[in-house]
Design a binder for these strands. Structure first.
Lengths: 111, 111
DNA sequence: ATACCTTGTGCCCTATAAAGAAAAAGAAAT
DNA sequence: ATTTCTTTTTCTTTATAGGGCACAAGGTAT
């Protein structure tokens, strides 16, 4: 599993940088870009793709589904559409953390 | 999708009965039988396949993974082995923990 | 006639890589 | 510094390998 988590500091990545991150061919990235709506890099004047960190993260997600979990591309697409559940549960987590946060603030004020 | 849950009462089903249950071709069943260890029908004296209810259940499981959830055959195999799955879901866990971590950092900065 | 068998072949689509052209970036020499 | 040469990177378009089956041929048993 070639991909190593790296800090994302740059604003934009070239296609070559992204393909190197995941040890895949450039053409795979272009193909997935056509297939998946969530990968939509900007293009500069010349037409070169400029991937934001979010694009990279989204590519990573697809990479995970397809290469590690064994979904077909269609299966991955469906899974991504169905992510309303996950989004919802994330929201739950956020709400709970906000409660924790205000609790901690309360403690702080007591000190 | 085509398969309707039916009561499983018989001891054995012929390949024709099974393929009818799922509205698939006989050849698909024979193919999956070669691919997946968990489908292993007995054969009678003549060589005809005799599917136990368990075989049918297992076929149903594979059918679900491949036709409804969009796994590749290999992906379905891995999923059935179970080991890979846990490793894969680590990815989601890590991501959620990273979110939690950044929230906690946020909280810390507020304090 | 029907339902099944095995073995082999062929096919369609998915998923990816290669090929070819153009531009940019380095490196060397003037 | 600027010209020239070479290598790298990107682009788009085209080709190809393999997955996932279906189907046909030739056969057996009911």
């Amino acid at each position: 599993m070639p991909y190593k988590e790296k800090e994302i500091t740059k604003l934009y990545y070239s296609i070559g940088e992204v393909s190197a991150m995941f040890s895949v061919n450039n053409s795979l990235i272009r193909f997935w870009e056509k297939e998946f709506d969530i990968i939509k890099p900007k293009k500069n004047k010349k037409g070169n793709r400029m991937f934001t960190p979010l694009d990279v993260e989204n590519f990573h997600l697809i990479f995970h589904l397809v290469k590690e979990r064994g979904y077909t591309l269609q299966g991955a697409k469906d899974h991504l559409k169905g992510n309303i559940d996950e989004a919802a549960s994330q929201h739950e987590i956020i709400k709970r953390l906000q409660k924790i946060k205000s609790f901690l603030i309360e403690i702080k004020e007591d000190l």
